[in-house]
Every structure is written in structure tokens, then in C-alpha cells.
């Protein structure tokens, strides 16, 4: 039920994002989703790709600091109130969200929200109990 995500430390200076994309593209790694959190000095780039381990190795070999984390992908109907209902559930169960980001699925037209939780397993239980659709890793990697 979990999705593998890689996080990359990048300095806040021109060309670093492009370098990550270039390195991955050259080795045929496809990016499925991404988000960037930044400060004035540095950023943390989070990626979901079609081959996590290969991407991690390539980036490390290119001199980047990389870590692997587990996130949860939730499918939300692409309509008003879709996100709100899910956040309501999490809030009620006192599940803490570290961060989240979203994208729209190409074929189904649904929105996919990637969550990073403090307690991933507990969060999955809560979502399942409420009948919220969790997308397995393979589904996301193969999008």
C-alpha cells in the first residue's frame, strides 16, 4: 500500500534541478510525480519514478545526497470537496501530515494526492477504514 519516493538535497542555485532531470533522463528513468520544498539556501526535491532503486543509484553516483522514503498515494475524485473530505478524515483521526502534493491522473481523470505521514501504517489503517482508495506503488510507477 506504500509508494517508494526518493528525496534529493539540492542547493538553491541555478541549474541544479535541471541537472537532476538530465541525469535521470539520460538513463531512461521516467518521473511520475514531483514536488519541491525550498528555503532561500536549499531545497528538498521529492520524486516518484518508474524505477526507484536505479534512480537512487544514478543520482548518488552523480554526487547527490539522496534518501528513500515511503509515502501513501490516495485517489480523490476530481471534483470540488474531494480533498476536503480526505483531510477531514485524517484530522478527525489525529493523523499528522508531514507534507503532501497532488497531480491529476492522465487516463482516469482523478486526482492523486501523495501524503507523507508521521506514522504511515496507522494512517493507512484510518484511510482504509473510511473506504478511501489507496493506490499501490506499482500503479503509480506505471502511470
Amino acid at each position: 500500500m506504500k509508494v517508494q519516493q526518493i528525496s534529493i538535497f539540492i542547493e538553491n542555485k541555478s541549474g541544479r534541478l535541471a541537472e537532476v532531470a538530465r541525469v535521470l533522463g539520460e538513463k531512461g528513468v521516467n518521473i511520475r510525480a514531483l514536488s519541491l520544498a525550498d528555503t532561500s539556501d536549499f531545497g528538498i526535491l521529492r520524486l516518484i519514478v518508474d524505477n526507484t532503486d536505479v534512480a537512487k543509484d544514478i543520482l548518488k553516483a552523480s554526487g547527490f545526497t539522496v534518501s528513500k522514503t515511503e509515502v501513501v498515494a490516495v485517489e480523490v475524485p476530481d471534483q470540488p470537496g474531494g480533498l476536503s473530505s480526505i483531510l477531514g478524515v485524517l484530522d478527525e483521526a489525529k493523523v499528522n501530515v508531514e507534507y503532501m502534493y497532488a497531480f491529476v491522473e492522465r487516463n482516469a481523470g482523478n486526482a492523486v494526492i501523495i501524503f507523507r505521514f508521521d506514522e504511515t501504517d496507522d494512517a493507512i489503517k484510518v484511510l482504509q477504514q473510511k473506504g478511501i482508495s489507496i493506490l499501490p506503488g506499482d500503479h503509480i510507477y506505471g502511470l
Binding site: 520544498a37 528538498i44 539522496v66 534518501s67 508531514e98
Partner: peptide
Amino acid sequence: EVNENIFFDEMRKQR
């Protein structure tokens, strides 16, 4: 220089 031991996926911890 950041290495894996002092790199956190969460911005809160990194800061």
C-alpha cells in the same frame, strides 16, 4: 556538505 546521515526528507527536521 550534506550527507545521508544529516539529510532529512522533512523540511521541519532539516531546518
